[in-house]
Design a protein around this nucleic acid. Structure first.
Lengths: 128, 128
DNA sequence: TTTATTAATGCAACTTAGTTGCAATTAATT
DNA sequence: AATTAATTGCAACTAAGTTGCATTAATAAA
């Protein structure tokens, strides 16, 4: 039933996102891809990958969008793990192990969530 | 020590945000204000109000920015409550009572956080 | 292998969000 | 009333994302 085609742009973009240690922005991808494809294509490939649930979208405290690979999303696609954005090195990483706990009144229906924490990452904080 | 001036634009914008039941976007504010002031002024007033910690900034799952009044931020300005965005009526509300619990490895330094959940609000879900 | 189908792409033009420099205005202080 | 510096408006700009349409190319069918 999958009518999604395996194009060079799609393959490259998915590889970049999967192999990156951190979440990538559209601008990051465009810089890496050079003129392999048009910037509009990047937007459209990202939309497709989101729809296919191969990647997910992260908005940080300022609304900046980045994309990261999904790990275990075939069954449920609720990304209730925390994303951390470092204010020093700008990196956005998924803290897959940290699942925040919370309870909404039962009248609410949850479809998706976006938990982003900003501050200093271990590399930049100098803490141990 | 406050060198912030009490202008009409500032007063109006703060009132609008405080009296709104939900978080407002720049576009919302511009629509309400009409030609009371320039749209650039709205951006600058919002920046000032953020710096003065009278309002806070919310980014939803898609990176859309809205602003809401702060309630108890004079002491600490960590907004670790959940924001809920309704996909049906587009409203963004603060769920002040719901504080998510989570623990980061101690090497991380947290400065700010953005927790946004999307789905259906009580009005739109029809649940009780 | 060739043909047919339609998803995917490139391009240009567009919208929306936000920023910047600068001259003019005005709130608050003296 | 005069002074000072914060604030504003304006115009021009950058960045992010979208849309329509003609062209290209991945996949399936013949």
């Amino acid at each position: 039933m999958s009518n999604s085609r395996n194009t060079i742009a799609r393959t490259e973009i998915l590889n970049l996102i999967r192999e990156a240690g951190e979440a990538l922005s559209h601008a990051d991808l465009q810089a890496s891809l050079g003129d392999l494809c048009n910037r509009v294509t990047i937007y459209r490939v990202l939309d497709r990958l989101l729809e296919e649930r191969l990647i997910h979208k992260i908005a940080d405290v300022d609304g900046n969008i980045t994309y990261a690979a999904c790990h275990d999303c075939s069954s449920r696609h609720l990304h209730n793990h925390i994303h951390f954005r470092c204010e020093a090195c700008q990196s956005v990483t998924c803290l897959n192990r940290v699942e925040p706990e919370f309870k909404l009144p039962r009248q609410y229906v949850v479809h998706s969530m976006n938990f982003t924490v900003s501050g200093l990452c271990p590399k930049c904080s100098g803490k141990r």
